[in-house]
Design a protein around this nucleic acid. Structure first.
Lengths: 240, 240, 240, 240
DNA sequence: GATGAATGAGGTTTCATTCAT
DNA sequence: CATGAATGAAACCTCATTCAT
C-alpha cells in the first residue's frame, strides 16, 4: 500500500547516531514562536496525512515529521489524535462550504443555471480531492467523528439553498419537472461528482481509463450537465 | 538475507485438487480438520472486519477472535494481513460480478430494460454494503491492492456487456441518444448507487435523513430510473 | 515498509487454495518409500542449510521445502531440530576425517612431506567450506553441541598421526627443529587453512581481495608451505 | 568510535565544554535522562548478546532485560534489530582499530619489531573475544551486514601500515625475505590469532586442551613469533 | 511410513501518548 | 511555549513442534 511507500522513507539512511523515532530536525531558521502559525501548519499537514492514509493509517509521527514542530506540539495544541482529526474535519467542511457560497448563477435561466451549478460542482470536487477523501474516511467510520462536530451541520444549508431557488424558478417557468426537489438534485449531482474522485482508482484500474484526465474528464463534466438537465426537463408539464 | 531468496520458492503448486464442492473430505467430527471450511470462515469474517474497520484499522486478532480458529491459522492459510486482504478483495469482486450475471432483462424493451437494470443495481448495492465499503477502502489506498489482483480485471466485462446490448437496441429503435455509451451509463448508474451506500453516514447526518430507509430509499430507486431513462431518451433522434 | 517488498514476493500468486506454511508439494514422481534414502537426503539438505544460516538461523521449514519429503518426516527421522543438527555435525566430521586419511606422503622427504601435507590441507579446506562453516557455528555456540557427540572425538587421532610421523623423521634427520610437536604444527596449518575460508567475507571486504580466487589463492597455498617449512627448519640443529 | 564524533556534532554547543572530568552535567538524579549513557549502555549490552548468540540467536528482549531501559528504547535509539547489529559491528571494529594504533615498535629492530607486533596482536585478540565472535558471525552471514557499514573499510589501513614500515626496514637491512608483503604477513598473523579464539571450543574439545590457558597460551604466543620471524628471515638474501 | 492441518509460545516492531526539563 | 527522552500496550508475524488420519 502507499503507506508503505511513505513509511519506507521515514527512517531513510538511519542517520549515523540514533535520534528518536520520527522527527529530528536541527532547524532553527527564522520564524518560530508563532502559535497561530504553528497550529495552522499542523492542521494543514494533518489534513493531507489523514486524507492520504485514513484515520487509523495516519501516524502522529509522520504528521510531526512533515511539520516544523515536534510531535509534542501536536498534543500541546490538539490534545490527541482524535481531536486533531476532528479539527481537520471541521476545517475541511468549513473551507468547502465557503467555496460553495461563491457560486453565482442568478443571471442565468434555470436550465443553464442548473447545468452551470452541476459543472462547477464537478470541477470543485475534482479540485478538492482531499476533502472528498476525508468524507470517505468519515463514512468508513460510519460517521462517528462527524457527529461530534455539530458546527458542520449548520454549513449544509447554503449548498442546497441555491439549488432550491433555481428549481423554483424552473418549475414556475414550466421547464422543470415538479417531482424533484433540491435534496434530490443535490444528491444526483453529488453522487456523480464524488464518484469520479472517490472511486477513481478502482474504476480507473478496472476500465483502464483515468477519470480525471482531460479528454475523458471534459466529457464527463458535460455529461453530468446533460443528465441533470434532461432529467429535470422531462415531464416538466406534469404537475404532481 | 539470503533466506528470503530461498523462501521465495516456498509456495508453488499444491492445493489438493477439488475445490468448491464444500465438504468432500472425510470430515467425520464435522467441526475440525476441514480446511475448506476453515479457510472460507476466515475469509468471510475478514471481509466483515476489513469492511468495517479498513485495512489499517482491521486487527488480525479481532478476525481470529470472531473465528473458530486461531490467529495462527490466518497466517497458515493466508500468509499475511495483506495477502488476506487481497483475497478478501478478490472474493468480494468475484461474488458481486457473479450476482450481476444473474440479471435478465432480455425480454423488456430498451427503456424498461435500462430502468430495470438501474433499479436492480440500486438494490444490489444496497444489499452489499460490505463490498462497497471495501471498494472505498481500496480507493483510500489509491488502488495499490486491487492492482495486485489481476483476476479482478477480467470480471468487469460482463458488467458492461449487458448494458451495451440494451443501448444498441435502444439506439437501433431510435429511442436512445447516440452519444452515451455503455461506459457512460455504467458510470452514471454506479456513481448514484455507490453514493447512497458509501456516503450514507455523512449525507444522512448532514440532512438528517437515512438514505437506506424505505420511504426515502424507494423514492431514490425510482428516481434513478427516471434520471437514466430521461437522459437516454433525450435527443434520441439526433445521430452524432 | 520495505520489508513488504521482500515479503510481497514470498508467497507469490497466493495459490487459490490455502496450502500450509512451508512445504506443500504434489509430487508423486517415482522413488518414494526408501527410508535410507529419505534420511540421507534430509541430512544432506540440512547440512547445507545449517552451514548457510547457522543453528538459530536455519529453519526446519526451509529444510523441508528443499527436500522431497515433508517437515513431518524430519521429526519422524530425527526427533528435533537439535538432534538433526547433531547428526549433521557428526556426519560432517566423519566425512572430513575420512578424506584426511587418504593423504599419502610417506615417500617424500620430511621437508617436502610437510609442505605437501600443508598444501593438501589448504585445498581440502577450500573445498569443504560447509564443514568449516559448521565448525564456526559450533564455536559460536561454545561447543555445546559437539560435546554431545562423543564419536567425533575419536576421529581426531589420524589427523595428527601422520604429522607426528613426518616430524619424527625430520627431527631424526636433523632437518626439523625439536620444539614443535604435531599439535603445534597442526594448529599452525589449521589456523591458516581455516582462516581463508572462515574469514573470507570480512577479510575479502576489508582488503577488497577474494582469498579464494586463483591468482591470490595459489599464492596463499605456497605461502603456507613456505611458512611451515621455514619455521620447522629454523634452529633444526638445536636440541632442546 | 566514530559514533562519538557524530554525536559530538549533534549536540553541538550542548555539552558544557570540559569532558573527561566524570560528571560535569547537571545530572542530579544520575540514573535517568542521560541519552548518551542510555545509548552507550544498549550498545555495550548488545555487543555481548550478539557476540554470544549470533544475529538470529540474539533476542531483543534479552538485550533489553540486561539494560536499565526497556525494549522500546532500543527501537527508539536504533530503529531495528538489524540497525542495532550494524551499530555494534561498527563500534566493535572502531574499538579494535583504535587499540591497534596504540602499538609502538619503532625503536626495535625489524626482527624484534615484527615479533613484538605478532605477540601483541596475539594478546589483543585473546582479550577481545567478543570482537572475534562478531567477525565470525559476520562471516556466517557472508558479510552482508559489514558491507553496509562503509566506514569500517576506512579503518583497515593503519592495521597494515605499521607492518609495511617494519617490513620495508627489514628488507632494506637484508634480514627479511622479499616475497612477503604486509598483506601476507597480516594474514599469517591474523589467521593464527583469530584461530585460537575463534576455534577454541572445537579445537579445545577435540584435543582436550584449552588454548587460552596460561601454560599453553604462553607457548602459543611465542610460537607465533617463531613462525613469523623464521619465515621472514628465511631466504632474506634472495631478491625477487 | 507418511501427511496436511493445526498450534502455543514467543519474536520483532509500532503505536499514541506522557514525562522531565 | 517548547522539546527530546521515555513508555506500556498491543500490533503483526514466525518458530519448532504435534495432532488426527
Amino acid at each position: 500500500m502507499d503507506t508503505a511507500v511513505v513509511r519506507g522513507t521515514r527512517r531513510a539512511a538511519a542517520a549515523p547516531a540514533g535520534q528518536g523515532d520520527g522527527n529530528a530536525r536541527g532547524q532553527s531558521t527564522g520564524r518560530k514562536r508563532d502559535p497561530e502559525r504553528t497550529r495552522a501548519e499542523i492542521l494543514k499537514v494533518s489534513t493531507g496525512v489523514f486524507a492520504a492514509q485514513g484515520y487509523s493509517g495516519a501516524r502522529v509521527d509522520e504528521i510531526a515529521a512533515l511539520t516544523r514542530t515536534t510531535k509534542r506540539m501536536i498534543y500541546y495544541y490538539f490534545g490527541s489524535k482524535e481531536q486533531l482529526y476532528l479539527e481537520v474535519l471541521k476545517d475541511a467542511y468549513g473551507g468547502i462550504r465557503a467555496a460553495e457560497r461563491e457560486i453565482q448563477v442568478g443571471s442565468l435561466n434555470p436550465r443553464d443555471a442548473v447545468r452551470r451549478l452541476a459543472e462547477l460542482t464537478y470541477d470543485h470536487h475534482a479540485q478538492h480531492s482531499d476533502f472528498i477523501r476525508l468524507v470517505m474516511i468519515e463514512n468508513i467510520h460510519r460517521g462517528v467523528f462527524i457527529r461530534q462536530v455539530e458546527s458542520i451541520r449548520d454549513l449544509v444549508q447554503p449548498a442546497v439553498g441555491l439549488l432550491e431557488e433555481i428549481l423554483k424558478r424552473g418549475r414556475a417557468e414550466g421547464v422543470f419537472r415538479h417531482d424533484a426537489d433540491a435534496f434530490d438534485v443535490h444528491l444526483v449531482i453529488s453522487s456523480y461528482c464524488v464518484f469520479q474522485v472517490a472511486n477513481q482508482y478502482t474504476f480507473g484500474y478496472l476500465f483502464g481509463r483515468d477519470l480525471q484526465e482531460p479528454p475523458l474528464s471534459d466529457h464527463l463534466r458535460s455529461m453530468l450537465g446533460d443528465v441533470v438537465v434532461a432529467w429535470l426537463e422531462t415531464g416538466a408539464e406534469i404537475k404532481n
